[in-house]
Design a protein around this nucleic acid. Structure first.
Lengths: 345, 345
DNA sequence: TTGAAAGCGGTACCAT
DNA sequence: ATGGTACCGCTTTCAA
């Protein structure tokens, strides 16, 4: 890889000054057409590729937006079989769909997108690294704490997808967890006459917490008794089952905090000979693709994932264009009844 | 958004020189612990975010890899309904899965990934822009011509996914189109006794061309008569049907150049009351997710899409670590018989 | 161990 | 219409 030619090389070869070379690319209109032509030709001949670093440094902006996504590497099973994704279990997930929206909207606005994988370990260093290269940042949930985000948001516009503790003053795009969960519970009560409910998945984030809270209050509104606490996860449900008299003690419905947990739970139940939805109803939340091909297909609350990403960029553009008031945008959700509650064949 | 503090600000506030500030971040070991501590504290307090532009400029490397992907914006239908993706028709597609592999592998190697949307319009400007910001580039098919790529590849390592005219001297990751297509045709001949075949989709790229060629030669090997030319696309098949006596003139099988065309063809046939696979077999190529949930599910040849992306980065790392010989890597494909050929219910 | 200073490759303002 | 020339913010010798 030969050393990359610079403006200086091009200028010399073309017999002009570096200022002219720069202008030839940025504001050709200000130069005589012939000059522009010469510069462009020489540049091509030399294989000139302008350094974005230098450009960003001098211009004070990078033309790049950043996305702090999930570290797929950590959460992706070792790639044992390169053809093994026929269940769509691993891909596409929530992040992938949101990311797509971010991508599309960035390009539409003339920005390239820099994607970094966040996880709570090295997070600070990595987000600073990304922040330093970009004009604005979209941050996905569960990647970064508010304490890290706040200082950064004072230097670079930041939009977070979803909400969490301490981010009230940041730009946010939030979905209607409450409405979705309420619809779901009401459906189970009214259509399927479910009375005994269990909530699955820990509620350690604001979003999951909101789902749990509405789950409880909706039950109460229907004069039903909510469980005293959520079950930590699919595994613990399975473990619990082991000790009991099998189906005897099953609730009417397992309401899971998200689709991933719901699908795992269905697997765990199946292993123990418990059928969904015949023996028990299981529902998810998110609307990922895997729930469309699972057996049974998953009753869930759908998030407009791609729109979430696009909206985040919209908000970011507002900030980049001078707005200074933090903005919160709300997006709707939609309840989708499928087979795991017995609604479809 | 206050002006971002720089090394100078931090240095002044901490009472040290800018060199010390830099060292405190890059090689803390070379400084007295107390000094490092002071610098870090001050930096935090000021909300210091190092400029990657400046860093990249000074260091001569960016720590970023680039991916020239497809311009989803152009090819994505206007987002009429934010919840409308239950057929998986628009997402995830081939690019999305390859992209995921690229992403994972980049992160694993400590690089962030810059994704740009390519399409044949503005391509040159945009790829130069991306190239200037990165230490290496992965280029997806149908985004960029060899004439654009070759000069760039002399300044920045480039790996192309798939192959096309004039890229013999570039780094490439290629899949086994031949083996896959051969298996598919043989399956249709042997298991389904198909004798009359039509190939659907124009073959204007090396890859599609390869599929068409092997399609023909495999038929010949089986003493069957290949069609004289491929049909341009699903629409033209449909148009042709219109003029004929419906099912009378149907072939035994439509072999499509890719899954997208196959799914569109199935739709077109259905509209005309022709059933797949009862009246005619339809097959695809790629193995995208939509073929898993379509009705009928799609018989196809699967590409190891994520592995393609990961392999591309592997090759890139080789080049970044000094290798100078262009490398071509081959990846296998896998034939998957599903319902559209009548193999599964 | 720390500081001074020379770039890195452009941009953009001010002259000419 | 062009050229000269200060920066932009950081890394990295080289000295002290």
């Amino acid at each position: 890889m030969a050393k990359r030619p610079t403006v200086y090389d091009v200028a010399e070869a073309a017999g002009v000054s570096i200022a002219t070379v720069s202008l030839a690319f940025r504001r050709p209109a200000k130069l005589r057409p012939a000059t522009v032509e010469v510069v462009h030709t020489t540049a091509r001949r030399l294989g000139y590729v302008p350094s974005a670093s230098a450009r960003g440094l001098a211009a004070g902006r990078t033309g790049v937006l950043g996305l702090i996504s999930w570290d797929l590497f950590a959460s992706t099973p070792a790639n044992s079989d390169m053809f093994s994704n026929s269940t769509l279990r691993d891909f596409p997930r929530y992040v992938d769909e949101v990311q797509r929206g971010v991508e599309i909207a960035s390009w539409r606005n003339g920005y390239a997108l820099l994607v970094g994988g966040g996880n709570h370990r090295n997070s600070e260093a990595m987000i600073i690294d990304i922040a330093g290269r970009t004009d604005g940042l979209v941050v996905l949930p569960h990647t970064m704490g508010a304490e890290t985000l706040i200082p950064i948001s004072e230097r670079v516009p930041v939009v977070i997808v979803s909400e969490f503790e301490g981010t009230e003053n940041l730009n946010r795009v939030i979905i209607d967890n409450d409405g979705g969960m309420r619809k779901l519970v009401e459906h189970l009560v009214e259509e399927h006459h479910a009375r005994k409910f269990v909530f699955v998945g820990n509620t350690d984030s604001v979003e999951y917490g909101a789902r749990w809270n509405v789950f409880c209050s909706t039950l109460v509104e229907n004069e039903l008794q909510p469980p005293s606490a959520p079950l930590p996860g699919p595994e613990s449900v399975a473990a619990g089952l082991h000790e009991e008299s099998r189906t005897a003690e099953l609730p009417d419905a397992f309401v899971c905090r998200n689709d991933a947990d719901a699908l795992n739970l269905i697997d765990a139940l199946r292993e123990r000979g418990i059928r969904v939805p015949e023996d028990v109803i299981v529902t998810g939340f998110d609307g990922i693709a895997a729930g469309l091909v699972s057996e049974p297909t998953l009753t869930t609350v759908r998030q407009p994932m791609q729109a979430l990403g696009e909206t985040a960029i919209e908000v970011l553009m507002l900030q980049l264009n001078g707005s200074t008031v933090p903005e919160t945008r709300y997006l709707p959700t939609r309840f989708e009844a499928r087979s795991s509650c017995g609604c479809r064949e």
